[in-house]
Design a protein around this nucleic acid. Structure first.
Length: 117
DNA sequence: GTCGTGACCAGGC
DNA sequence: AGCCTGGCCACGA
């Protein structure tokens, strides 16, 4: 394809759009699947650009600590509420069980022998 | 083209 | 348990 590879931003958004209800993904994970391991901050920067605007389930994106990183932005409470509405349970520390809720696309399953296409 | 910034991550105290 | 530091890479002006 002579067309340039999709921007990191679009790549992340595509992944977020595929997160099923009741599941979550971490920023580092999005960056990894987007082809830029270590670019977790950028994944967050991409979400910040959306600012909750659009049909994208940005609420399902949380940090590696299993906690929402939007508290200081002002709408973190809304994110937790939306996730709780999907069945996600947060403990007293505001953290959820990533080992159970973290979702991986089939083409990038952690157990898959092939890393990416 | 360069600089600064950020919804992070991991390690150490 | 919580708090601080350094490092990482892409996007906007």
């Amino acid at each position: 394809m002579s067309a340039p590879a999709p921007a990191f931003r679009d790549r992340v958004l595509a992944l977020v759009a595929r997160i099923p209800e009741g599941r979550v993904m971490t920023y580092g994970q999005l960056a990894l699947l987007a082809g830029q391991p270590g670019a977790a901050r950028q994944a967050g920067f991409v979400m910040n650009s959306l600012m909750g605007g659009g049909e994208l389930p940005w609420q399902r994106v949380i940090n590696a600590q299993g906690r929402v990183s939007t508290h200081k932005l002002g709408f973190g409470d809304m994110q937790e509420r939306l996730l709780q509405a999907e069945g996600v349970v947060f403990d007293a520390s505001g953290r959820c069980d990533l080992s159970r809720l973290q979702w991986w696309p089939e083409e990038a399953a952690p157990s898959a022998p092939e890393p990416l296409l």
